[in-house]
Computed example of a mutant assay.
Amino acid sequence: MLGDLLNDFATYFELGGYVMPPLVLATVVLWFAIGYRFAALKRGNVRSVRRIIQKHPDGFGREPRGVIEKAIEQGISIGRSAHGDLRRLLDDAFWPIEREVSRFHKLIMTIVAVAPLMGLLGTVVGMIETFDSLGDMSLFAQSGGIAGGISQALFTTQMGLAVAIPGLIVGGLLERRAAVIRLELAQVKDILCARAQQGSPV
């Protein structure tokens, strides 16, 4: 069963021509980046930011379970020992978290944009091979002739779209989640700064 699957993949890979290896590499990199973002965007708590801080005004007393809990724990710790501009201190402390939330977004969107173009390149190469076969009247050449050229054209187009469409959908969903987390990080700063000014729990 596994052997047949590997043979099918090898045939598919071969029919796609020299455009197929970069497309396969792009697929691997894309799904690695998506998996990384999915793990990095784990929120850690279903409650609103205000409710979390109300429930845990002195911290969690355990390892934070997600990016929001990590930011709140870090912010509360900074608020206890802060001397000076708390907002600036929170901005500096949250910068690595915000950078982590945005990591690989541009890479995902670049691969999503480039994959169909690579598929189109394979299509053009396949059609050139087809017309060369027609011009030479070599319908059954060693390289596949007309059938080989059309196969290459269709396989690379299919692969390019198969990479781009799921990447576009999943990447868009992850970026929406990242936007919500960035907004919540700003809320954490606002709430902790207001709490420090009032001198009492929110």
Rank of each mutant, 00 (worst) to 15 (best):
M1A: 14
D4E: 14
F9N: 06
M20G: 08
P22G: 07
V29T: 10
L30W: 09
A33C: 14
Y36A: 09
R37Y: 02
L41D: 02
L41S: 09
K42H: 12
R50I: 09
K55H: 11
K55W: 05
P57S: 03
P57N: 07
D58L: 15
F60P: 09
G61I: 12
V67D: 05
K70M: 09
E73R: 13
Q74C: 03
S81P: 01
L86T: 03
L86E: 00
R87I: 01
L90M: 10
R99F: 01
R99W: 05
E100Q: 12
E100G: 07
F104C: 02
H105S: 15
L107I: 13
I108S: 06
M109A: 09
V112L: 11
V112M: 12
L117D: 10
M118R: 08
M118F: 12
L120F: 11
L120V: 08
E129V: 04
D132K: 13
L134R: 11
G135H: 14
S138P: 00
S138E: 13
S138Q: 15
F140M: 14
Q142V: 14
M159A: 15
G160D: 09
A164K: 04
I165W: 00
I165A: 05
I165K: 01
L173S: 06
L174A: 07
V180Y: 08
V188M: 02
K189G: 00
K189W: 06
A196G: 00
A196E: 12
G199C: 04
S200V: 12
